[in-house]
Design a protein around this nucleic acid. Sequence first.
DNA 1: AGCTAAACGAGACGGTACGTCGGGTCTTGGC
DNA 2: GCCAAGACCCGACGTACCGTCTCGTTTAGCT
Lengths: 192, 192, 192, 192
Amino acid sequence: MPEPIPRGRPRSEQSRRATLEATRELLHSVGYDRLTIEGIASAAGVSRQTVYRWWRAKSAIVAEAVLDGVIILPGAAAAGGSIAGILNAMGASLGSPENAGLVRALAAAAADDPAASEALYERMTGPTHAALARSIADGVARGALRPDIDPEVAADALIGAVLYRVLTRQDSPPGYGDDLAATVLGATPGTA
Amino acid sequence: MPEPIPRGRPRSEQSRRATLEATRELLHSVGYDRLTIEGIASAAGVSRQTVYRWWRAKSAIVAEAVLDGVIILPGAAAAGGSIAGILNAMGASLGSPENAGLVRALAAAAADDPAASEALYERMTGPTHAALARSIADGVARGALRPDIDPEVAADALIGAVLYRVLTRQDSPPGYGDDLAATVLGATPGTA
Amino acid sequence: MPEPIPRGRPRSEQSRRATLEATRELLHSVGYDRLTIEGIASAAGVSRQTVYRWWRAKSAIVAEAVLDGVIILPGAAAAGGSIAGILNAMGASLGSPENAGLVRALAAAAADDPAASEALYERMTGPTHAALARSIADGVARGALRPDIDPEVAADALIGAVLYRVLTRQDSPPGYGDDLAATVLGATPGTA
Amino acid sequence: MPEPIPRGRPRSEQSRRATLEATRELLHSVGYDRLTIEGIASAAGVSRQTVYRWWRAKSAIVAEAVLDGVIILPGAAAAGGSIAGILNAMGASLGSPENAGLVRALAAAAADDPAASEALYERMTGPTHAALARSIADGVARGALRPDIDPEVAADALIGAVLYRVLTRQDSPPGYGDDLAATVLGATPGTA
DNA sequence: AGCTAAACGAGACGGTACGTCGGGTCTTGGC
DNA sequence: GCCAAGACCCGACGTACCGTCTCGTTTAGCT
């Protein structure tokens, strides 16, 4: 049994949560570049040492916050829905300035650290990507979508388009999700 | 005449270039997060004060380096080519690890500062986007592409797909540009 | 009976000794300033908490180590001998660099904390001082020493001279004890 | 000329003085052990970095404060006076609790760092020692003092006696200087 | 040629955050 | 109730950069 007997004072789950939530809060308000471990600790009411005990860098805290579901972005949550449903959920929520800022912060975290990048992929874009690809593959199989569509690549394009607009700070108009689906898949929302 | 008569010692163009080039170099080697003004100045053989005299923040230096063409990414350069040509140029060059790193650094800069974001858009993705949209619109007008394609949105999707793969650190296989064009536009490279 | 019945696990004498001996060791090797409770505990193979349970500060540990005889300096031990004998024993042993370092460490401890100071006085310099004063008083009474000598003050001067040379890091030459006795008491070693 | 041309912003003499004076103040109030660079900087109204730029350790600051005359102890100042005059000046001033505390702090600094030790010797005890030795040698030569007195050793004994009483926290009674001179030199104050 | 004015290098300054060390306190489980 | 283990908050350490501020020096255009 490789399970080590726990010794000493157990780790405070409350401190862990407070740290992750403070990180989310600060990511919202100041972005990734101005996010500091000092600031996280003080906002969480936790000592700096405790933060350093459990995380090696600010990107690692962001990664865990994402993996833990403390930071949630819509899209993945709508994984069970239709293609246009997912896209509209993404577009709508990312349209709000605060969520757009959070996405940019997460992109910066991903750019900074491969581990954070992987965490983000695993928890946020990955599931959405998979859901989209599955729906598209299904549509292709049913003959409802063009046969020359590669579902994986199409999912890249759908997610990428939204990401591109957020990073370049272009608002996505209300019906953007529908337009995107129509353009990429050659499908009106209702048909897919 | 709002043009002020230049007095005193003129600004050193050499210092300006050295600063921008050192910035490009460091963006390559350490990324945006670990880029420091101190480091730029010392790598450029320029005093810190001179950097601060001309730029307000590191993101501003990055922005000017981009606007000035000191930092160049392929894609925009291939603006005159065919759709698949542009995509393959982007995909190929971004496939190389060093360029991918540079793209991630620029994405972080864009996430950090709206001004840098705008500069990047104006000089890097914007022209590519416009070229793609023009070519696509042309194809649609000629009847070579599906009529339900919105050229602007399609260009978002094409660029976004590549960006998405770079940010999530997924290598794009050799023929990815072709696949992408086929999937989004329903066109084989040769026909567009 | 004010003697409380001891309950629970008795205090570990081994931990106590190990702590005091580790303290002596570290006082030797790093001095008082760089002496840490953390270091003592780990060198003694004892938990930090156990140290804190029994001592309030590092100076208290030093004090107890002295009182307990774990730290011994010559001089007091030679209390039964002649004046010159005591002085030469002090001079000789303090002449060795390691003992001189220890004396400086103890002086720093004494400077830091009145309680440590008192412990040192009680166990180390006090007995030596008393022995010297007694011998001197005896010599004065016997007419072997000048009558205008105040034995207490003379003892201050003898001990102080050695201490002064150690603190200012001046080596005491071999015959320094004799010179000192001759100068202060007007006596050649043999006559006292 | 090995004189380097001064470049850049000149060092602030005010910051230097403020640092040294804050050090003296804190040495008085908290002693050497609880003296911190953080505390010095904040008491001096100077940034921590500025302190670190000029001094490598707290003992170095103490040393410079002594060498610079920011910390002054009587004795050396009375170097021109008679033997009993010097001793009484030392005794009287060291008798005051605050000065005694300062002496203990300086002793701890000397114990901590050879460089500080040397500075203290050069500026504080050294001159007093030399003055005493000179006066004593003079007395011996004039026949006013016993011929078997070694002036250097006698000076050790006189200074050492005072130092010993301060370190062991024994108050020196008013006439202690006279007693000391009489005991060590066999001389009443008036005769020397 | 001398004067004026701005850019330049050097480098000190007050700061903020870094990542680490140690100090004391506390909370577990085992003895 | 002692003890090892180890987490906790706190404060200081010494370092790296930040952005600002003098300095003396350099390099132009204008008298």
